[in-house]
C-alpha cells in the first residue's frame, strides 16, 4: 500500500512527486506512455520559467524525472484502468495488478483528437501522424499537410519545416494560435514554406499501398480541393484521458475533464486531480507543475487529517 499513487507521470505528477517525497510521503507514479508526458514529445519549450534560451522537452522531462526519483519517487510503467473508492483506501486496477493507496492524484493529461475522416485510421502511422517529434524525420524533402489552427498546429508546422519542402496548413475556420506563434510562423509564410488555407475542412485522406497521396478538403463554399501530399499531421485539439474513470464515482464535466474544488480535490474524498486533465486547466507545463505542487500540499493535509477539518492550524511548507 502507498500513501499516494499518481496516475500518469507528466509534469503535473512529477512536480507533485517532488513535493510529496520531500515530505516523506510514500509515492508511486504509474505511467503508460512516456515519463514527462506531452512535454517529453514537444521539441522546444520556450515558456517554461528558468530556461532563458528555451529547453528541449525531452531534457525537461528527464530532469523532472531525476529530481522526483532523487527524493524517492517510484515510477512504474503500466496503465491504470480503474479507480475504486473503498473509503479510507482507494484501489487502482493496473496492468500489473491492483494497487492500494490512501490518496490518489489523477494527472493523466490529454490525448490528440482525431478528425474521424475516411483514411485517418487506415493510414495511421503510414502517412497519418499525431506526433511531429516522433515521425517528422520520415518526411525529409517531402510535402506535408498539417490539419489544425491552434497553438499545437502552428508550433508543430514550424518544427516540421526542418524536414518538409512544403506544408499546406488546413484551418477549418480561423487561426486561433497565440500572437507569439503567429509572429513566429510569419517568416515561413513569407518564404512560401508554409501555405495557410483558411476555411478548409478535411473530407478524406486518400492513399495507395505506399501510403498517403492526397488530402481532400472542402472549402467554406462547399467545393472540394485536392492537396497532394506525402503525409498528414493532425493537431485539432486535445481530449482528456479519463476513460479509465468511467466506472468510478469521480465527477467529470461534459467534455470529460475532471471537476475539482479549490483544493484540487474531486467529489471523492482523497482523490485529487491536477494538470491538463482538470476542468479549468490552462494547458501549460508551468501551470501543470504549479497545480502538481498545490495538489501535493493538499494531499499532505488530507493524509494528516487536516484538509476536511478547518479548525486545525494552517499548513506549514517545508522550505
Amino acid at each position: 500500500m502507498h500513501d499516494v499513487v499518481m496516475v500518469g507521470a507528466g509534469p503535473a505528477a512529477l512536480t507533485a512527486a517532488i513535493y510529496t517525497t520531500r515530505e516523506d510521503i510514500d509515492t508511486l507514479l504509474v505511467e503508460k506512455g512516456v515519463v514527462g508526458g506531452l512535454a517529453a514529445v514537444t521539441d522546444v519549450i520556450d515558456n517554461y520559467p528558468g530556461f532563458s534560451k528555451g529547453v528541449h522537452g525531452l531534457e525537461l522531462a528527464e530532469s523532472l524525472r531525476e529530481q522526483a526519483e532523487r527524493f524517492g519517487a517510484k515510477i512504474e510503467l503500466g496503465e491504470v484502468s480503474g479507480v475504486h473508492d473503498e473509503g479510507e483506501l482507494k484501489r487502482l486496477e493496473t496492468t500489473s495488478g491492483d494497487i492500494l493507496a490512501k490518496a490518489v492524484l489523477i494527472t493523466t493529461g490529454c490525448d490528440y483528437k482525431k478528425t474521424g475522416v475516411s483514411g485517418e485510421e487506415e493510414y495511421y502511422a503510414r502517412g497519418v501522424h499525431f506526433c511531429a517529434t516522433c515521425d517528422g524525420a520520415f518526411y525529409r524533402d517531402k510535402r506535408l499537410v498539417v490539419i489544425g489552427g491552434g497553438n499545437s498546429a502552428l508550433q508543430e508546422s514550424i518544427f516540421l519545416t526542418r524536414y518538409a519542402t512544403h506544408i499546406d496548413l488546413l484551418v477549418r475556420s480561423n487561426i486561433k494560435a497565440s500572437d507569439v506563434l503567429q509572429k513566429e510562423i510569419q517568416p515561413y509564410l513569407d518564404n512560401g514554406k508554409i501555405t495557410v488555407h483558411l476555411g478548409v475542412t478535411p473530407k478524406e485522406i486518400v492513399g495507395d499501398d505506399n501510403g498517403v497521396t492526397k488530402v481532400i478538403g472542402t472549402s467554406s463554399d462547399g467545393k472540394d480541393i485536392d492537396f497532394n501530399t506525402d503525409g498528414v499531421f493532425i493537431f485539432i485539439g486535445l481530449k482528456p484521458n479519463t476513460a479509465f474513470l468511467k466506472n468510478s464515482k469521480v465527477k467529470l464535466n461534459e467534455q470529460g475533464f475532471v471537476i475539482t474544488d479549490n483544493n484540487l480535490e474531486t467529489n471523492v474524498k482523497g482523490i485529487f486531480a491536477a494538470g491538463d486533465v482538470r476542468s479549468g486547466a490552462t494547458m501549460q507545463i508551468a501551470s501543470a507543475s504549479g497545480e502538481g505542487a498545490t495538489a501535493a500540499l493538499k494531499i499532505r493535509e488530507y493524509l494528516e487529517g487536516r484538509l476536511h477539518n478547518p479548525k486545525v492550524e494552517q499548513l506549514e511548507v517545508t522550505p
Binding site: 512516456v34 522531462a61 517529434t133 517528422g136
Partner: peptide, 12 residues
Amino acid sequence: SDTCGYCQMVKT
C-alpha cells in the same frame, strides 16, 4: 530520431 520521447523510453 533526435526528438522522439518514446525512443528515449525504449532506451531507458
